[in-house]
Nucleic acid binder design. Structure first.
Lengths: 235, 235
DNA sequence: TCACTTTCTGACTGACAGTCATTTTTAAGT
DNA sequence: ACTTAAAAATGACTGTCAGTCAGAAAGTGA
């Protein structure tokens, strides 16, 4: 009989029901301000039950983080499903744009990412299946970046005198830096100086893509204007 | 009589004594694992006294963060004290190198920076004099970056078709992204995949500087090899 | 209906951030 | 030296909350 299977499915549903509740509470008032009692109430369960499904509060938040990273990676996969239609340098641009769109559409998940990265209790992370998945996704994302660069080196839109792995890491890290600034800004979080500068996120990111574009693009790709819509004239 | 002044000085000393103790405890076991009682004991004071000098635990950690950001900005200032000896593109490189050196020498302060950026309780931050100073330092750092770019646009080593403010923000954010990855890696924190790639921090950062260098440098500066020691040959 | 397992409950515990009435120390006047 | 008022420091106490666990409830299968 399929009882076993049904039970597994139900267990998974409960888990999701708890994560749903946790998101509602934590996204509205922040991790520190949210109590397990509140989350339990929102989930229409008792606090004890939460601990049957998640080892502790951090683990529950990691489950949320995993959700976010799954969304992001699915979108990355979509880009690469049509990778044959694009040049390498275009793919790099598209990945960058994806991160920007993600931080705008899912600021709360992005917050979770930042929190995740601030954790430095390595053992705890290694024990968590959610953290493991997040890590796997990160690796995957980096691999997509590497592939885009390799494609670009093949099609001649990206200089081939870089080590693609190394360059991927550099671009990925820079993209995250830019995305983080964008995010912090949208939070109203400090950095009001940026507002005073009257720089829009769009043009900021455009500059970044151009910078990366001209930095890695071949002369040829640069001349053809493939590196960005606001292409830089090489003098 | 100078009693007033002496008292002020003593008060400042107490404050520093507490921050010293807090650093010892928090740097060794992390913010969450550290209790105010422990810190009080280390400082040879009672817990209550800690609260006479710092509103709460977060505020105390912000004081530590401020220390770190002061160190960083002093070093930035040093670079600019001799700015007339360097071209704009060189200054950009030096700033990047400074961040890398900082994260290596002061990983604990850098941790504090990451934590600081993960806070999203804006009101609390605005009330804290320490957070205010950190914010001021950030603005200063960005201004140094802008100046470096302006110098480079003057001396012809940096393309002048970018908005220096915007570009500064982009490079600054990217630098922080790279630095953060470097830091996380040195923590043993996830990202073991980087180890597997056998990419050294040096070459990683070198790539970044080259990327930024070639992205913003003028053709002329690129040819003269001013953008980096491992200069990229333009085909 | 019974016996057994799985799931759930919520009162309880321990830990810790933050408070405050009280004590101790310091500074200045007489 | 004595008094007094202000400033600094104390640590026992409180409230909150993460996490536990003995027992209740629900589900399963014979």
């Amino acid at each position: 009989m399929g009882t076993e299977e049904r039970k597994k499915r139900e267990k998974e549903q409960r888990r999701n029901q708890i994560i749903d509740a946790a998101e509602k509470i934590i996204f509205s008032k922040g991790l520190e301000q949210s109590t397990m009692d509140e989350i339990a109430e929102e989930a229409e369960l008792s606090k004890g039950t939460l601990y049957l499904y998640f080892k502790n509060k951090n683990e529950l938040y990691l489950a949320i983080t995993k959700r976010g990273s799954t969304i992001l990676n699915n979108q990355l996969a979509k880009i690469f499903a049509t990778s044959h239609q694009h040049t390498g340098i275009e793919l790099i641009r598209m990945i960058g744009q994806l991160y920007l769109d993600f931080v705008r559409e899912h600021p709360n998940y992005f917050n979770a990412f930042i929190y995740y990265e601030s954790l430095n209790n390595v053992e705890e992370l290694e024990e968590s299946e959610f953290a493991q998945t997040c890590e796997k996704h990160r690796e995957e994302a980096l691999n997509y970046m590497i592939r885009a660069l390799q494609i670009g080196m093949q099609d001649g839109t990206i200089q081939d005198n870089y080590d693609p792995k190394e360059l991927a890491l550099v671009i990925w890290a820079s993209t995250k830096g830019i995305t983080t600034v964008t995010h912090m800004r949208s939070l109203g979080h400090h950095l009001e100086m940026i507002d005073e500068m009257e720089i829009s996120v769009e043009s900021l990111f455009e500059s970044f893509l151009n910078l990366v574009g001209t930095g890695v693009a071949t002369e040829e790709a640069r001349e053809k204007g493939l590196t960005g819509s606001h292409n830089i004239e090489t003098n």
